[in-house]
Amino acid sequence: MSKHPMIKTTALAAVALLLTTLVAACGESATTETRSGPEELPAGVDREDLATAVFAAGCFWCVEEAFDPVPGVVKTTSGFIGGQLADPTYKEVVAGDTGHTEAVEVLYDPEKSSYDELLTVFWRNVDPTDAGGQFCDRGSQYRSGIFYTNDPQKAQATASKKALQQDPDAPSPIVTEITEAGPFYMAEQYHQNYYQKNPVRYNFYKTACGRADRLEALWGPK
């Protein structure tokens, strides 16, 4: 037995508090940094040549990481969609009262990657059976969803969901919503590319949240 039980107990309590703080919710450590306008695209890229897709799959930090490596994806932006309040802050959304969900806007070159390919990436990075949030992040602000921007996207998203519902090897029941995209509001700059700017904290959050383990259980090895 430790000769200093009080010190040991205090140390364990401090570790527990740190874990609780880090894993409580995606973005819980956000600062009061103000938001900026749309970020610039890479040099030589014309926005008119790009298409837009919007997906919600829980923590937007993780969704950015999932889509950034996809061929043809030029930019991902973390933000909010689907609520009643115009231009909400992160703190307002995470409180769960605005109706928004954390989402990521994906700008991509349709000549290099199709919307169907993006849908495949989406499904493999979401728990489509969870209507109460995603992984350790709970509440409607973390619900999964596909937000279509035109009729072809709606048709493709609907078809992809139906195909999974008919696949005996896919997770079920699939409760992910398919909704017409409304205004997309960019989140605070602090959240953009978080997984790249804060890799240690991000990887701890993602691992402790159980995201990778749950996705492997649902979809098999990556």
Rank of each mutant, 00 (worst) to 15 (best):
A159L: 02
H191L: 06
H191Q: 10
R138V: 10
D97E: 14
K154L: 11
K8D: 10
T77I: 12
G27Q: 13
V104T: 10
L85A: 14
A11P: 00
E216V: 04
G145W: 02
F60I: 02
A16T: 09
S172P: 05
W219I: 11
D137E: 09
G82I: 04
A13T: 11
S144K: 00
V73P: 06
D68N: 15
P42R: 02
Q196N: 11
M6F: 10
Q153W: 07
F184Y: 05
A14Q: 05
A181C: 05
E117W: 08
E40D: 09
M1F: 13
R138W: 11
V175S: 02
Q165P: 05
A56R: 07
L215I: 02
P171I: 13
S113Q: 14
W61K: 09
Y202H: 08
E180Y: 01
A30W: 15
K91I: 15
P168W: 05
S29L: 15
A57T: 03
G99K: 10
Y185C: 12
A155S: 14
T31M: 06
G72V: 13
S78G: 12
D87H: 13
D167R: 03
Q141F: 03
A163L: 02
V121F: 14
T158G: 09
F122R: 01
R124F: 00
G99M: 13
K162E: 04
K206Q: 09
T158C: 01
L17Y: 08
V93S: 14
P171E: 01
E188P: 12
Q192S: 07
T158V: 01
D169F: 07
G82C: 07
T10G: 15
P42S: 09
T89Q: 00
V74N: 13
P110V: 15
Q166E: 11
K91L: 11
E102A: 13
L41V: 09
Q84C: 04
C136N: 15
D127F: 08
V126C: 02
V54T: 14
A159V: 04
D46K: 08
A14M: 13
P152K: 01
T77C: 03
A66R: 11
V175T: 00
D87M: 12
L17G: 14
M1S: 12
T158L: 02
P88M: 05
L119P: 10
S140N: 07
E39G: 12
L215D: 01
P183H: 04
Y90N: 04
R143V: 08
T34R: 06
